[in-house]
Design a protein around this nucleic acid. Structure first.
Lengths: 162, 162
DNA sequence: CAAAATTTTGGCATGCCGCCAAACTCGGAA
DNA sequence: TTCCGAGTTTGGCGGCATGCCAAAATTTTG
């Protein structure tokens, strides 16, 4: 299953590299199968680069890959992607509290998020009172702002209890 | 001088890799020349590993290296190390505000600090009112706690306006 | 001064992430 | 139905960050 996780299903938050986190966040909002090209164009990298990271993520149990067809999150991958989104939002909100603009908060968050543990995120989230806003959502809206580091695919289902 | 810096003396905060930041923080509190072995034993790595990173830091202008003798921070290196310490403290304090213990805050900070920009730190610091405490200092004391990720060499001069 | 300790050099490895060229697969057009 | 082109994968390679080891160089010490 998820190999780096000590117990099956236990998320530490430090399992995945920055790029892999980006991929999971991107895939999270996709209903159906996603093609290699979809990912490579989103991140502006060579398709072969995507194939390789995707192979690793599949190997690690985060997604199913049908060669020449596409990928889809596994249940574990979906759980992990949800965590990644929550982490992004909690950290983004934290930066917002210290006066960063939404775009800056999102940007800064994207650089650090993959190194922040779930334990810490859970603490921060409860300390914040499980907020329902995010650095990637315009006030009063449900749709996420398309920052450079925030994929528009993440736009929906952002306003909710973290 | 500091090569990755756009303007001479301008710090973005993203110039150095995690390990290099650790080295600078370690060197910051040292008065005189520091030997390769001092660093390698502090970080529990092979001396040859230290020699190589040190060579790069010297090349980049952060420190002076006299072969077979030791290293010492340059003026620019000292400035950068001061920034690194401030960054560590601001981020550690931030985590403390969200309920992390000092040791946890310090640990979490150590993983992310090298990816957080100076611009963001300055904002956070002023938003915090330029605090005078740190995750690495016991309340009421001037000396830093020796967390796993906090070098005891950083213990002094912590209590001051950031 | 010679041996011991320290430091450096050079080679090599791993993880992460990227590119390119060549081979492969698939689906649609002829 | 066959074949071509678009999309995908494979294999080779490179760069950065970080580490190790063995051998060579240098400094220190007895």
């Amino acid at each position: 299953m998820i190999e780096n996780n000590p117990e099956n299903g236990e998320i530490t938050g430090l399992e995945l590299s920055p790029r892999k986190v980006s991929y999971l966040k991107f895939l999270r909002a996709k209903e159906d199968t996603v093609r290699t090209t979809d990912i490579s164009s989103e991140f502006d990298v060579d398709p072969s680069t995507v194939t390789k990271l995707v192979a690793e993520l599949a190997e690690e149990g985060y997604l199913d890959h049908i060669p020449y067809r596409g990928v889809k999150l596994t249940a574990a991958g979906r759980d992990y992607a949800e965590f990644c989104l929550k982490r992004h939002q909690v950290l983004g909100l934290m930066f917002s509290h210290y006066g960063l603009s939404p775009a800056e908060a999102c940007d800064e968050t994207s650089r650090i998020e993959s190194f922040v543990s779930k334990k810490t995120i859970d603490r921060m989230c409860s300390s914040m009172g499980h907020p329902t806003v995010s650095c990637c959502v315009k006030p009063g809206e449900t749709r996420q702002i398309n920052h450079d580091s925030c994929f528009h695919e993440n736009r929906t289902n952002i306003i909710r209890k973290l």
